[in-house]
Simulated assay, not measured.
Amino acid sequence: MSTEQNSISHTPDRSRAKRVSAVVATRNRPSDIRHLLSAIAAYDSGIVHEVLLVDDASDTPLHTGDTEYPFPVRMLRNATRCGAAASRNLAAKEATGDVLAFLDDDARPLPDWFHILDTALTDQRAAITGRVLPFDSSVVARARQYRYEVRYAKHPAYSPVSFFAGGNSAVWTDHFLSAGGFPDVVTASDNGLVERLAESGGEVCFVPALRVAHRNSKGAGIAFREAWRAGRLAPRSTPAAALRRFADSARTQPWSDDPAAAGLNLSLQAANSLATALPAV
């Protein structure tokens, strides 16, 4: 691809229909992959050019079986675990579509997902991201969903945002490659892409109609590990600032509607705040 084609200022050719390369990073979830591929096939509006599955060193190598789909399914495999960001970047370099659509292996696009993508991703938007809805109902899932909804409520439809749902999003391929893809970090690589696109002059816009159903809960243990890890990787904070974030979180929780989810969210905030206040190692 030429330097001109890699430039963020390049205007994609809108004289033809989008060709979407759906990208899915996965590990040890063959059943989820089968359900996801079936959903993509059922809801494709005619724009899915290919699906790229990146097997992140699953214990048993992923195989899609003998099922035929109306689009090519391309398999890539990491010999050792590399993480979601590196896996998605690998797929992006191999993709032949002009749009990259990112889905999680444990997510299911809603029936209008590809139609919304097709209409909402315009020349003026480098990328779009949407809403994540739960298909599980545990306390951990409800607590996570509440945090999502608080974030969504702050943003009008089609407004620029600083977050990017790596499991529910789409970006022009040339913009993604020009920006250097996802930062290869342990956490917050999704939002790191927003910063990289902004440096190249591109915006991520919030499209609330772009919705997926997602398995929100991986268990309370994982939720606490993620909250602690995010805090340790964040910039250092004073104890007073960490306490203010904890107090702010306590005031905004759904105590009357869902006290169990509220209590869990506050506990997660406590872990995160403490992690940011401890000295760097």
Rank of each mutant, 00 (worst) to 15 (best):
Q145M: 05
L62S: 09
T276Y: 00
P160F: 00
S169A: 15
G83H: 04
A213T: 08
R125T: 13
W228R: 11
G219L: 09
S200G: 15
F176Y: 15
T64E: 14
L110W: 03
N78D: 02
N272C: 05
A261K: 12
L103M: 14
S162N: 10
G180R: 02
E50D: 08
V212F: 02
V194C: 07
F102P: 01
D32E: 12
R74D: 06
I40H: 13
H63V: 11
A271F: 06
R29N: 13
V20F: 06
A95C: 11
Q253A: 10
W172D: 13
G97V: 09
A91S: 08
L133C: 05
F163I: 01
V161F: 05
T173C: 11
R251T: 13
A57K: 02
V139C: 08
V185Q: 11
G263K: 13
P239S: 09
T238H: 11
S2E: 12
R16W: 08
H175M: 11
L266I: 06
N216H: 15
A127G: 05
S58A: 04
P279W: 00
L266Q: 09
Q5D: 10
V54Y: 09
D98K: 00
E94I: 01
A22C: 14
F114T: 14
T11W: 12
W113Q: 13
R125H: 13
E149L: 13
M75D: 05
S178G: 15
R225C: 01
A179Q: 12
R16A: 13
A42V: 02
L243K: 15
L62W: 01
A230N: 08
A241K: 15
F71A: 04
T252K: 08
F246L: 15
A220E: 14
E203L: 01
D44Y: 04
G201Q: 07
V140F: 00
V186H: 12
L90R: 13
R232Q: 10
N265H: 05
E68M: 05
D55W: 00
G83L: 00
V99C: 03
S31Q: 14
L197I: 04
D184L: 01
P70T: 10
V194K: 09
P160I: 02
R14N: 10
D105Y: 13
V194I: 06
P160H: 01
A165Y: 04
F163D: 06
D13Y: 12
L278K: 12
A165N: 15
A247N: 11
S178N: 13
E4N: 10
A240L: 08
A57G: 06
A227P: 02
L100T: 08
G180F: 07
I47R: 12
P279A: 00
Q5R: 12
T173R: 15
A91M: 03
K93D: 14
D59P: 02
E4K: 14
N191I: 03
L133P: 07
G201R: 03
R77L: 05
A234D: 09
F182C: 04
P208C: 08
A127V: 05
L117V: 07
V150C: 08
S2A: 08
A240Q: 13
A41N: 03
F102D: 03
A170T: 11
E50C: 04
P30Q: 10
S217E: 02
E203P: 04
S249L: 07
